[in-house]
Design a protein around this nucleic acid. Structure first.
Lengths: 155, 155
DNA sequence: CTATATGTGGATAATGTTATCCTATTTTAA
DNA sequence: TTAAAATAGGATAACATTATCCACATATAG
């Protein structure tokens, strides 16, 4: 598995938020229900994304979470690095702490070009692109059957 | 991280075994020392690979573990699937249980070609190729400094 | 001002992964 | 026959990740 469950939840949640009207906060509770993710756990994740400046939050009635200004341009890489750490991109397949062109594991030179593809994908894929895809109604964000095909699935 | 720690240990151990003479069993203890891996844990891993027919084991004095016949042709994919399960190759980036061309997550069609590269790498890379690489002395199998450059590092 | 609805933050629990330990059982050498 | 060296297998512990709960602060509507 490439991404931790936490990262998966984070990405799902942010894509979902990007499909919603940008001017009103989205409720943690709503996201949790739509994605079938445990609400209290999602809370923690969203809060860490507030600290990482990917989201802004509002307390009290009519509160909730919003993508930061220009949120559609947030890349998956930014989300994943926020959660898994900045070293996410330089992992060795065999788990060596030091693995570079100088001191390489025997897989290093085979792995590097593949890893670059992964990184490119994560860097080039933004919330905006994914939200647009979801809004076509052709994709689903969660295993919840029937729900979440398109942003207006609940309408 | 792509591979679990357990898979990483397994791959390291089997590569190491492939660098050793094929006609004498290798000791769990020796592998553990060479790789800096906890010996009792490695035992469990090697035993599961015996059950999966990647290794054969011999008890008692002069016992140990050996690659099965034709062990040099074992691919990383075989090792990883044995440990992480056969569904390893069809994971969804977002973690959806069902994610295919028919019911796809919004990342699916971006992810598939990248995933294919990963699978190709794991399938095409065999213990023989990796052992040969290690035997050139240019690569290391573990973080242990100085040791394990080449199969004869301890000589 | 009060009730309600929200996020905040800390503590705690449940689960899964990784690691250890102990007691067999098997095999060989002497 | 015995001692030593190895794997086998079950039980348990340590640790990290995932998940839950509760008391609190904040904001809005009425």
């Amino acid at each position: 598995m490439i991404l931790s469950r936490t990262s998966q939840y984070a990405v799902q949640a942010l894509i979902y938020m990007a499909t919603q009207p940008a001017d009103t906060p989205v409720l943690n509770k709503d996201i949790a229900v739509r994605l079938g993710v445990p609400a209290p756990y999602l809370t923690k994740i969203l809060q860490s994304m507030v600290k990482g400046n990917l989201l802004v939050s509002f307390r009290g009635r009519l509160g909730g979470f919003q993508l930061r200004e220009g949120g559609r341009d947030i890349s998956l890489m930014q989300i994943v690095q926020l959660i898994e750490g900045a070293t996410f991109a330089d992992n060795c397949l065999l788990g060596l702490k030091k693995c570079s062109a100088e001191t390489a594991c025997p897989l290093h030179f085979r792995w590097v070009p593949v890893k670059e593809k992964i990184i490119k994908l994560l860097e080039e894929t933004t919330l905006g692109k994914l939200a647009d895809a979801v809004n076509t109604g052709k994709y689903r964000l969660a295993d919840i059957p029937g729900s979440l095909f398109g942003a207006l699935a609940a309408a």
